[in-house]
């Protein structure tokens, strides 16, 4: 574990806590894409299939459980919580994410560490995570004003993978024969997708104005 990876995991955890806070505090999920939340639930379930078979550390197992449980809890809230579900932007959150799931799985069948169920699903989860934010970014563009907590959620969610890229560079330089081509390539694509969001987020922070993504 190095400082970049710890910062990445803590930033990821912070983003999830911010989203939980927003939904709990405002009893509303306006501006949040349920499709992105469902994609993240799929990402975590298929990435951590080894949750019960490979024990790496208490930290690793604990974080996996937190990620799976929180993503499922958020999806449950947005679908079934009597108050929260009413604020879901159903008519704006229309990204046809089936293609993202299909393309990620197809790519995982071609490019994986090993041709086994666990490894193909692991690669699938890596590719799917790279594009999982798309429905959320589209929703932000469509829904005019973005509330602060939702903006912060997306910001930290994008920042966590940038820390992971620093972690991979650090490990590549310090550990012999360390390679993470699948996660690394996918992580760069994932972080690049946030580029314009980061730009408008920085502008809104600099001008102390409301975050606004151009439609």
């Amino acid at each position: 574990m190095n400082v970049f990876r710890l910062a990445g995991d803590m930033t990821h955890l912070l983003s999830i806590l911010l989203l939980l806070l927003k939904i709990y505090a405002t009893k509303s999920c306006s501006g949040v894409s349920r499709k992105t939340q469902e994609l993240y639930a799929i990402v975590f379930i298929f990435r951590y299939l080894d949750l019960f078979t490979d024990f790496i550390s208490v930290y690793n197992t604990f974080m996996k459980v937190v990620f799976i449980a929180s993503s499922l809890a958020i999806v449950w809230c947005m679908r079934f919580h009597p108050v929260v579900r009413r604020s879901y932007d159903r008519e704006l959150d229309t990204f046809r994410y089936f293609f993202l799931v299909g393309a990620s799985f197809a790519l995982a069948l071609i490019w994986h560490e090993k041709f086994s169920v666990q490894e193909v699903f692991w690669a699938f989860s890596i590719y799917l995570e790279a594009v999982a934010i798309l429905p959320q970014l589209v929703l932000l563009q469509r829904s005019g004003n973005v509330d602060n907590l939702t903006g912060q959620y997306v910001f930290f969610l994008g920042a966590y993978r940038a820390f992971y890229i620093l972690n991979w560079i650090y490990r590549y330089l310090t550990e012999p024969r360390f390679t993470r081509w699948i996660a690394g390539t996918s992580g760069v694509v994932q972080t690049a997708l946030y580029a314009d969001f980061f730009y408008y987020y920085f502008i809104s922070w600099k001008n102390n104005s409301k975050l606004k993504l151009p439609a």
């Binding site: 690793n60 560490e113 090993k114 692991w122 992971y164 993470r180 996660a183």
Partner: peptide, 10 residues
């Protein structure tokens, strides 16, 4: 035997 692709990261 081929080392399993170690996924020590989250």
């Amino acid at each position: 035997v081929e080392l399993p692709a170690n996924h020590d990261e989250l």
